[in-house]
Structures are given as C-alpha cells and as structure tokens.
Amino acid sequence: MKPPADSLLGASLEGRYRIDAPIARGGMSAVYLGVDLRLGRSVAIKVMDARYSGDPQFLRRFEFEARAVAGLKHPGLVAVYDQGIDDGIAFLVMELVEGGSLRELLRERGPMPPHAVSAVADPVLGGLGTAHAAGLVHRDVKPENVLISDAGEVKVADFGLVRAVAEAGVTSASVILGTAAYLSPEQVEAGDADARSDVYSMGVMMFELLTGRTPFRGDTPLALAYQRLSYDVPAPGDVVDGVPEEFDEIVLRATERDPAERYADGYDMRRALLAAADELDLPSFTVPAPRRSAERDTMARFRADRAQPQVPAPPGPNPTRVQSGPATPPPVAAPTPRPDREPAAARTTRPESRFDEQPEPDHNGPVRALIWTTFVLLLAVAVGAVGWWVGQTYLS
C-alpha cells in the first residue's frame, strides 16, 4: 500500500517558496527541497509539525530564535534566510547543503581516524563558538544535525528549534528520543542548558566518531538519558585502540558531569582541539560527503520526475501528512565509571573504517621501473652514437 501523498508538495509558502520534494521527516518537523521563486535559487524548507504551529508561545519563540540565528555568520553554520507562518504553517528557509549528514557518513564509512575527527569537529566547534558568543545555545548537537556538502564543507543545522519546542505547550517525547544519547546531565536533570551543555554533547559526538558508538545504553530513551547522571563517559582510548591520549583528554574534559569542569564554550574546546592536532602533526583532510543520502536521493528522484511527462493525480480527498520519528539508535556497550587506561591487550582494536582504506599496492611497479630505465639507457647510447657519427662525418 502506497503512503498518502504529501499535501504540501507543489505548494508555495507566502507565494514565494515552492515546496518540491521531501528530504527528511522527524518528530518535530519535515525538511523539503524547495525553490525561492523570487531569487531563483534552491533552498531547504523546514516545516514544523502542525501541533506546534497552533501554539502561540512556540510561534513567538520560533520567530525570535530564527531572527537570532539568521544574524550569525560562520562557514560552520547552515545559513538561515527567512522564516514565516503561512495559513498556520510555520516554516524556516535555509541554505541547501547538497551532500548529506554526518550520521549518514558514519553509517556508510564507520568510525573516523583522528585527522578526520579533527576535520569535522573544527568547523562544528567554530560554528558553536560563534553562536555561544552571541548568547545562543544549540541544545541538540548530534550527527544528524551536522551536514557535509559535496565540497567538503561541514555545517551545523537546527539552531534554536529545540528551545522553541521545549517552551511550547505541547509535550514532545520525540525531542527526548532524538537527543537522548547526547544530552548533558543538566539537561536531563533540570532541563537547563548553556554553552557548556553543547560542549558535553560535542564530547559525546567526538567519542562516537572515534569509536563508532555512543558511550551509554538504555532500554528506553529516558533510561538512556539518565545513565549520564551516574556514569562518566569513558575515554575513547579505553574502548578502542589507536586513539591518541590528546583526544582522550579532550573528550574527558568536554564530558565532565560538572559543567564547571568542562570547556567554557565552543571556542574554548576548539582551541584545545587545534592544539592537539598541531602537537600530533595531523594531516589536513577534506571530509567527504556520504555517497548515499536522503538529500541526494531526493534530488535524483526530483530531477527524474521533472524529466518525465506529468500525469495528473486522480481526484480524491485531501491526503494527510505522515510523521515518523527518528530511528532508534543501535545497541551499544554498557557504561562503566571512568577507569584508568587499560593495557592494550584488554582493549579492542578500532573497528574497520573506510576512512582507513589505502590504495592497492602496485606489484608491477619495480618491473615497469626496470623497463623504463633500460629504455632510457638505450636511447642515450643511440643518441651518443648518432652524435659521434655526425661529428666524424663533419670533420672528415
């Protein structure tokens, strides 16, 4: 049975932003590929779920947060172009990042070596630091909210939405479901968040990038969230082999349960990261976009549909939108109190990653080198012989 068609497809919000195709759906919103008809450019349009659009408190906070984020300028942040409410539909117009999410890249390639982790975390922390300096907190730092373009740009998306939803008069278990693995202890215990909360979430995300898994587990999102109240995030090097101690120290400080013991903000954590990368002499690295992503699949289908003749849909009742929550994270190892570094024999090796792929060795290289050397020597002898013959002929 085919799902009902999306009633928003083809609609123009405020007569300016045409919705062309769905990219992703979550518990709070849906993201669409769209076009700014006035400027003639492709955009991403985030449409909030209808239960939020009817809440005046949410709409006020949504507008305030959108205006604040639109004023931020940093290459590590997804640009916000516009926001509005059209016939009860609250929407946000953003820069379209053609590529995919960090979550999709992790699923495709697995855990990252330190130089790739540094290449991801540097722009993310720069973007977070810019927002923190302006008094803004993300509250939902996780791989799903980090986008990677085909040009290797890394950008943070969805600033301010969690705060707007949290202050709305609508209970949303999906907010906890989507962030349970990355929430800071103070967010779980009291719902409070500041720049150091984003730092904690960033530390958890770095742990996952290095090891391929999140540090805690639980039978329910709530149980998963509460694990961090009793347990520390372990050092990545205590879980898998090959993690530099400098990166362990960054993750451990970022995920201290006491916010006062963490880095003060994104800029502070970024300085520590860059110092570690410099000390380790890590090579520069361009983060690849995932080969398969929701955004890429949407673009391909949309272009294919536009290339085919359009067949009008049969008449019928107006379809309704279908919402689905994010996928449940895979099971991970149970948390343990932060131990001293175990001997190497007790640790597992870092899982295989396609980031570590090396080119196949060229077994024929020595043979080809010998052939070329012989050819050059013969050519030199021939040239010398011709030169000698010409000289002798001229002198005689």
Rank of each mutant, 00 (worst) to 15 (best):
Y32M: 03
L136H: 02
A333I: 02
P290Y: 07
R262L: 11
V233G: 10
V80P: 03
V311K: 08
L161W: 01
A157Y: 04
L378A: 15
G212P: 12
G191K: 03
A333F: 02
F247P: 04
V141N: 05
E95H: 11
D297M: 02
L59S: 12
P221I: 05
R292M: 03
D55C: 01
E352N: 10
V78Y: 10
A66D: 07
R341L: 15
A90M: 06
L37Y: 00
F62Q: 10
A50D: 14
A164G: 06
L136S: 05
P317H: 10
D122R: 15
P361C: 09
L370E: 13
P359L: 05
D86H: 14
A333V: 09
D362M: 03
A66R: 00
R213P: 00
V137S: 06
D20K: 08
M112Q: 10
L102S: 06
P283Q: 01
A225F: 07
E186S: 01
V43H: 03
V117Y: 03
A24N: 12
E104I: 04
E279H: 14
M48H: 06
S12I: 10
Q358S: 14
R139Y: 04
L183R: 13
I250D: 03
H138K: 11
Q323E: 13
A333G: 15
G84C: 09
M206L: 13
L379D: 08
V251E: 00
P259Q: 12
R253M: 11
E246F: 00
M202I: 07
S197E: 05
K142P: 09
S174K: 00
D268M: 08
I250M: 11
F62R: 11
